[in-house]
Amino acid sequence: MSEQTVDDFLNNPAASVGFDAQIGQQITSVDADGLTATLELSGRHHQPFGIVHGGVYCAVAESAASMSGAVWLHHTGIGGTAVGVNNNTDFLRSVSEGTITVRTSPIHRGRRQQLWAVDFTDADGRPLAHSQVRLQNIELPADGGE
């Protein structure tokens, strides 16, 4: 499978590819001010002691923030994409299974960098984790990188 382009994502944000597809992240809504996604947790997301591995939250935060940043860049006409340069995640409550919701919201959006908050909640709306992901805006090659 080839890599998903920003345009592909904008045309069909629910079509997970790559790591997002492997982990089970599903985008349910997206616009220039953030996205909402769900993730059905199971044993494949566990660390050795039966709870969700902290790296799951970090990885999902990185992906969700990067997608949010790329959508904003395209919405404003700046173009390009955004890549993570710092990911700070606090783990608030452990869980083993169930559907969690992921929501991104912008803290700062500039020409060169962006900062996004990513919040994780369980089915009862209780906070599970909170991330801040700093993104670097980058230009894409004129040929799409091919």
Rank of each mutant, 00 (worst) to 15 (best):
Ser94Trp: 01
Ile51Leu: 09
Thr76Leu: 15
Pro127Phe: 02
Pro48His: 12
Arg109Trp: 03
Ala70Thr: 03
Thr81Met: 11
Ser16Gly: 13
Pro127Lys: 11
Ser16Tyr: 02
Asp90Trp: 00
Gln26Val: 15
Ile78Tyr: 09
Leu41Tyr: 05
Ser68Ile: 07
Ala123Asp: 13
Gly54Val: 14
Val56Lys: 04
Pro13Lys: 11
Tyr57Ser: 06
Ala142Glu: 14
Ile100Val: 13
Val71Lys: 09
Asp119Trp: 01
Gln4Arg: 14
Val133Ile: 14
Val95Leu: 11
Ala117Asn: 14
Gln22Leu: 09
Leu73Ile: 00
Leu73Asp: 10
Ala15Gly: 01
Leu35Pro: 01
Gly80Ser: 09
Asn88Pro: 01
Ile23Phe: 01
Ala117Val: 00
Asp8Gln: 12
Val83Pro: 01
Gly24Lys: 05
Gln26Ala: 09
Gln26Tyr: 00
Val95Cys: 10
Val60Ile: 14
Gln136Arg: 13
Val17Ile: 03
Leu92Glu: 04
Leu115Arg: 13
Gly54Leu: 05
Pro13Phe: 03
Ala123Gln: 14
Gln113Gly: 02
Glu62Tyr: 06
Arg126Asp: 06
Gly69Tyr: 01
Arg126Glu: 08
Phe49Glu: 04
Asp143Gly: 05
Thr104Gln: 05
Arg103Ile: 08
Ser68Leu: 05
Gly110Asp: 06
Tyr57Thr: 01
Val133Pro: 12
Arg134Phe: 00
Val52Lys: 08
Val17Cys: 03
Glu3Thr: 06
Arg134Ser: 13
Val17Gly: 06
